[in-house]
């Protein structure tokens, strides 16, 4: 076998080509955001920051951004709390129906989002709820929780169970053991879960599209803008900012994951 380290040349070449395919749209985003032209096409016309400046003046966008931030904060906090419960239960306890229960909670991971959205819409309308940002939060919690559980399960599973026993053995009760040992050790996982939930909620479109009332979230706002050619350069600029925000959040999540891995001495990540 040729070169275990680098791998056969064609495989490495393929890998790089694949990355180009993955990143193609992402690379275009800043290019068109800074392009001085009303249409999104080549050839490029020149450099401008006007699209970004225009964003500052767009009130509707600010409202949508504020809505999205509210929803994302609420959804990530609630889904992380629910994720802590479920991940802790499945990592630590053996109980009847554990696999089907956890499997059911993880179901939104493979369910088409439109089904989740439609089902929630139907039940909310039947119960007479009016659609609002809160109904969007309800839906987002549903799809963020599986991700929280995935991240937190590995945090709970990576923790040596005898650490908690050692704490009890040294005189601490159940609550203090959780606060003094369990929580500090899974804290990086919790931070990562919050960040991932926040990012997913911020980007989610379909459920927000179905469940939002009069207050659009950012993706719903973007969707409404995509129809107007004139608005597209501004949307590109907005996309750029969102990309940077996502990268910052993910960098932070990865940093906390690594710190957690170093602390618990494990090398495996949740990726």
């Amino acid at each position: 076998m040729s070169g275990r380290r680098g791998g056969p040349g064609w495989l490495r070449g393929y890998a790089i080509g694949y990355l180009v395919f993955l990143y193609a749209p992402v690379f275009l985003l800043p290019i068109f955001a800074f392009n001085d032209s009303a249409i999104i096409a080549f050839p490029l016309r020149g450099f401008t920051t006007a699209n970004f400046e225009q964003l500052w003046a767009t009130e509707a966008m600010h409202g949508a951004l504020a809505n999205s931030l509210k929803v994302a904060v609420a959804a990530s906090v609630i889904s992380t709390l629910l994720g802590i419960c479920a991940a802790r239960a499945s990592a630590r306890y053996e109980f009847p129906g554990r696999r089907p229960i956890i499997g059911f909670i993880m179901l939104p991971l493979v369910l088409p989002e439109i089904i989740v959205a439609v089902a929630l819409l139907v039940v909310l309308v039947q119960l007479g709820f009016s659609l609002s940002l809160w109904t969007v939060v309800l839906g987002h919690v549903l799809i963020c929780t599986p991700f929280s559980i995935a991240v937190l399960s590995s945090a709970f599973l990576n923790m040596d169970r005898s650490l908690e026993e050692a704490s009890q053995d040294l005189g601490e009760g159940r609550v203090m053991t959780f606060l003094r040992v369990t929580l500090p050790l899974v804290a990086p996982g919790i931070v990562a879960s919050l960040l991932i939930g926040f990012t997913i909620s911020l980007d989610e479109f379909i459920i927000a599209f179905f469940l939002t009332g009069t207050e659009p979230t950012l993706p719903v706002y973007i969707w409404s803008q995509l129809r107007f050619t004139a608005k597209l350069p501004g949307v590109m600029a907005l996309g750029c900012m969102l990309l940077l925000l996502s990268l910052a959040l993910l960098g932070a999540a990865e940093y906390f994951r690594r710190r957690s891995a170093r602390q618990t001495g494990s090398t495996g990540g949740y990726l």
Binding site: P25, V26, L28, A41, G239, L243, S246, L250
Partner: peptide, 14 residues
């Protein structure tokens, strides 16, 4: 992790 809507839209551009 980048906006799904924009990724799809950018394929339209490509």
């Amino acid at each position: 992790w980048t906006s799904y809507l924009l990724r799809v839209f950018l394929w339209k551009v490509i």
